[in-house]
Design a protein around this nucleic acid. Sequence first.
DNA 1: GTCTATATCAAGATAGAC
DNA 2: GTCTATCTTGATATAGAC
Lengths: 176, 176
Amino acid sequence: MASSVPDRLTPRAREIVTAAREVLESEGLAALTMRNVAARLGIRAPSLYKHFPDKDALEAAIISDGFIEMAAEFEAAGAAATLVDLAAAYRAFARAHPHLYRLMTDQELRRDLLVPGVEDGAALPVYLAAGEDADRARAAWAFAHGMTMLELTGRFPPGADVEAAWDAGLRAFTAR
Amino acid sequence: MASSVPDRLTPRAREIVTAAREVLESEGLAALTMRNVAARLGIRAPSLYKHFPDKDALEAAIISDGFIEMAAEFEAAGAAATLVDLAAAYRAFARAHPHLYRLMTDQELRRDLLVPGVEDGAALPVYLAAGEDADRARAAWAFAHGMTMLELTGRFPPGADVEAAWDAGLRAFTAR
DNA sequence: GTCTATATCAAGATAGAC
DNA sequence: GTCTATCTTGATATAGAC
């Protein structure tokens, strides 16, 4: 069933965000330029500025979508999802969208440009799964983020058992 | 007491690395350009290419130094250092040299350009402190890296108790 | 070891016409 | 909503003289 929630963006702006997302995911962050986004739509870069004030605004639109989708993945894990469940969803999201993940998490965040509430929407399930212990939730998030980044950047040595490292960390965080 | 180990670099190359390191640490990764490095030495960018084949080689020299210094910090924590001790040293290093830390850890690593062994030299103390359990060592590293990056990029919400999050994670990893 | 001159490329953004 | 033309800036790197 299709969603009937009205889009926060105009139809043309939505097309631009879609194109930008495609450029990002297929060619990486360095390729996310106004020229490349425009080219994917068959237009010229200056035309984009009639729909977004600058590149930061376009990036923020992509990032907001990312948080909304991440929150949806967490919700799909169920209201009773454990930290282990959420870690699996988190890792799957990052592996499915590695460049988007880095855009969302690996730099300063222009919160003033985001759709209000999207960051909290993704964080809340983790907080709940951590027994409403904010410190534990942040530590578990840091572990997942660290594993994800080291995995995405190829920092573990060749032959390292990444699955086993995830398991070892999750065991630590869920031991009693 | 001064070290008597002969430098792997020529004297002029060492001066260039020092200048590059100063640019990086004081102005950030985006400012680490051949022009800026040269300017700090009072020369022009093309002159640098008589000492380093390209920018990647210069960056690799900085990164190699970083690993050597990180290993030295771990050694200063003693042969019986625990994961908690090493985490404190790791965090202190990252906070003292945030831009260097990101250069070292937050991207693909050109291992072919590094001084051989420097990466392992920094990793070994963690492996030992983790009871020679490679999976546990990698998980603990990921936690420390994730906390460090989230801290450096300002991703925790204002008012978050970062110390408490570190403690919560370290407690998890050292619980029995 | 450093210089000038230059090649090459590419980025974000604006003005103003259509 | 898109265009062309342009501004401004700045990056890595090479050739060849001194």
